[in-house]
Design a protein around this nucleic acid. Structure first.
Lengths: 107, 107
DNA sequence: TTAATTCATAACCCCCTGGTTATAACAATC
DNA sequence: GATTGTTATAACCAGGGGGTTATGAATTAA
């Protein structure tokens, strides 16, 4: 069976290195070179991670000349919300924390 | 470096088989035997998945005689909320959907 | 007490994944 | 045009992870 959107999303976020890249891209758009500097791994490794993040819909690329700019895609996390909605009953205990999150986002 | 709580949680949820087990346990408490029937994999494989889910704090076990009952732990998903809070800015676009979720949980 | 059931662990295997280096394509600069 | 810089891909490799069967410990049933 082909992997679901949940699979690709969870798997993409499952790797710490990949999640670190995503978190950097959440703050600002960066080129592959900029991402490689400070990532502690080679440039091809970074490119592979970016391809996976892109495949999961977490990241968008913007080629410009010889460099490619990457940025996080807000819509990429939507399946996470969908999955949580499937398990609302589990959330009762965490409700107040989620409420806090919403309040902070609202202001 | 030792893996963070995020790592263990995301990795635990990253495997489809494991997520399926977790989803079944979200609905009702089940024994290893009950989980194995209908999982499509061997009993030792199920036990290993359960150990990983337990290690991630997603599941609680309750030994009773020769069988062990497992159930989902609501608090296990808390780190997911924490992680989302770290990236609130990314959420602007998904805000209304999260709002929907909260409304449905409130009723 | 003997047999059957349930579960966890050990030992093993294969494949997938995350890393590497090498290289090619393309763009910018000299 | 030649060179340098940026990125993606190919080829490869080591390790980890998810599966298996075998087995033992503990509990229940016969």
């Amino acid at each position: 069976m082909e992997p679901s959107a949940f699979d690709t999303l969870f798997r993409a976020l499952g790797d710490p290195t990949r999640r670190a890249l995503f978190e950097r891209l959440a703050r600002s758009e960066l080129t592959v070179r900029a991402l490689t500097d400070g990532a502690g791994i080679s440039q091809p490794a970074v490119s592979k991670h970016l391809a996976i993040l892109k495949g999961a819909g977490l990241v968008l690329d913007r080629p410009q000349g010889r460099e490619t700019h990457y940025r996080a895609d807000p819509k990429g996390l939507a399946p996470l919300l969908d999955w949580m909605r499937l398990h609302e009953t589990l959330w009762a205990g965490s409700f107040d924390r989620l409420d806090d999150l919403l309040k902070r986002m609202d202001q």
